[in-house]
Design a protein around this nucleic acid. Structure first.
Length: 484
DNA sequence: TTTTGAGTTGTTCGA
DNA sequence: GTCGAACAACTCAAA
């Protein structure tokens, strides 16, 4: 079909639920053609894309609602369809007699083949396929070492990215959209993305506003008020020191390019924040880095990057796993983190490392169990960052941590939550303990416990493992893996 | 090709 | 209380 003026263009939204810096939408709008916008929930290609976790499904529902609302303000609908992407897209393109389909490519493994199927389907019916570069700062295919593989160590990776100069300037949201023909849409509620019985999402609702404008607001508020001191305050779970942009980035409500340019602009205005901004951008770099690892290793969530770990003597301990998941390990900083996760769908980055180290090293439970739990409960669960970070903690990853790095949950608590504010918030049954004892209630004298209203083993658990013994056990297990 | 330097996030122990 | 050393060996990237 040729590009006649009246013939509509289909814009296929994916992990890019925004209007600004959306090259596919931008080009479609600029063409002057009437538009039909569609989001496809593709649960059938389960081999091609890991099914979303429950918390992510909740976020997706909010994000789609938000995108629907902002499109509606411009007189434009968002059509919701379910099914294998290739069939849905070519069927819809045919129905509306589209001249073209526009979308942003994905570098998540398996997506290339989905896109290829879409292309083939469109070719058959004579509709042109216009795809645009993915959202990453740098695409994995264009950043290779001399053996043609992706870089596996962050620092050289990030140096290479920085040496490539700025990514393209973000595009503005299209001023005007020209709505195309009306098309039937699924009702979002029929997708059952949100929990009903039981409704466990109340904490998520209290914590988050999904969508592009919330994301932009968050970014600009952070750059204006939050970035000063980021390099050190980001480690403090008792402070509001992180950007909290991760779920917005995950669903493409904001693009890495927008974050990059906004941070650099802020740093140029205020040289005092330049080093904090640089640190912040490097965190954005980790997001890209993990996606690059995933690009080379589609099995990142299943297989140890270091095969020596295949023989690791993991323990099977359903009871301990459950205690960890529920925040009942008896280690306050660990329990606080796990409960924050359950309630809000995120966990402070520093605490993620502590709880992950605890599961893998203190409990000797396979990192894959932790990765799965995070995948299901995090609203920012990223197909790259989540498995890459778990492997990093476990030491099975590309850029392995020294085997002897076993986080001491008491020291970590005392160092990064010195007043016990974070623990008090998420483990309120310990709130009346003095700060000195709040990270190790088992050290409190009976009178101190009584005064705080605590009975260990009843109102709060005894530690499920002894730190010293668990550390020794972990080091022994890791030593064995090395030599085997 | 070979060599060299380095690798996000730590803890413990003994002086 | 503070401080530095020790805790392995290996892989990766770049010179």
């Amino acid at each position: 079909m040729t590009d006649q003026p009246g013939s509509p263009v289909l814009v296929w939204f994916r992990d890019d639920l925004r209007l600004s810096d959306h090259p596919a939408l931008h080009a479609a709008a600029n063409s002057g053609a009437p538009l039909v916008c569609v989001y496809v929930l593709d649960e059938d290609s389960s081999l091609r894309r890991r099914p979303l976790g429950d918390a992510s499904r909740w976020w997706l529902a909010q994000s789609l609602r938000s995108l629907q609302a902002s499109l509606a303000k411009r007189g434009q609908a968002l059509v919701l369809r379910k099914g294998p992407a290739a069939g849905v897209i070519s069927g819809l393109a045919q129905d509306i007699q589209a001249s073209a389909v526009h979308w942003i490519e994905s570098d998540i493994p398996g997506q290339a083949s989905v896109e290829q199927q879409v292309r083939t389907g469109l070719e058959k019916i004579g509709v042109s396929a216009n795809s645009f570069p993915s959202d990453l700062l740098v695409r994995p295919a264009s950043l290779r070492n001399k053996d043609g593989r992706g870089l596996r160590v962050f620092t050289p990776f990030w140096k290479r990215v920085l040496s490539m100069g700025d990514p393209p300037q973000p595009l503005p949201a299209p001023k005007k959209l020209k709505p195309g023909p009306e098309v039937a849409s699924d009702d979002l509620a029929s997708w059952n993305l949100e929990p009903t019985h039981p409704d466990w999402a109340s904490g998520l609702r209290e914590t988050w506003v999904a969508g592009e404008s919330a994301a932009q607001e968050r970014l600009h508020d952070f750059l204006e008020n939050g970035i000063k001191g980021y390099a050190s305050l980001r480690d403090r779970p008792d402070r509001d020191g992180t950007s909290r942009l991760s779920p917005h980035l995950r669903f493409g409500e904001i693009s890495p390019r927008q974050v990059w340019h906004a941070a650099n602009f802020a740093a140029a205005q205020k040289p005092a924040i330049a080093s904090d901004a640089g640190k912040f951008l490097s965190e954005l770099g980790w997001r890209d880095f993990s996606r690059h690892l995933l690009f080379d290793r589609p099995d990142l969530a299943e297989e140890n990057l270091q095969t020596s770990f295949d023989a690791f003597p993991w323990r099977h301990d359903a009871k301990a796993l459950r205690a960890w998941q529920r925040g009942q390990t008896g280690y306050p900083i660990v329990d606080a983190g796990m409960r924050e996760l359950w309630h809000t769908g995120v966990m402070h980055n520093r605490v993620r490392m502590v709880v992950a180290s605890f599961l893998v090293k203190h409990l000797l439970i396979d990192w894959r169990h932790g990765e799965k739990w995070f995948w299901d409960t995090l609203v920012d669960a990223d197909p790259g960052s989540n498995p890459a970070s778990w492997q990093w903690v476990a030491g099975s990853g590309a850029d392995a941590a020294p085997y002897f790095r076993v986080f001491n949950p008491v020291l970590q608590g005392e160092k990064f939550d010195p007043d016990g504010v974070y623990v008090s918030k998420w483990v309120p049954e310990l709130a009346r303990l003095p700060a000195k004892l709040i990270h190790q209630p088992w050290q409190a004298a009976p009178m101190e416990l009584a005064a705080a209203g605590i009975t260990l083993g009843r109102t709060y658990p005894e530690p499920i493992v002894d730190h010293k013994a668990a550390r020794a056990r972990a080091l022994a297990a890791y030593a064995k893996t090395r030599t085997s």
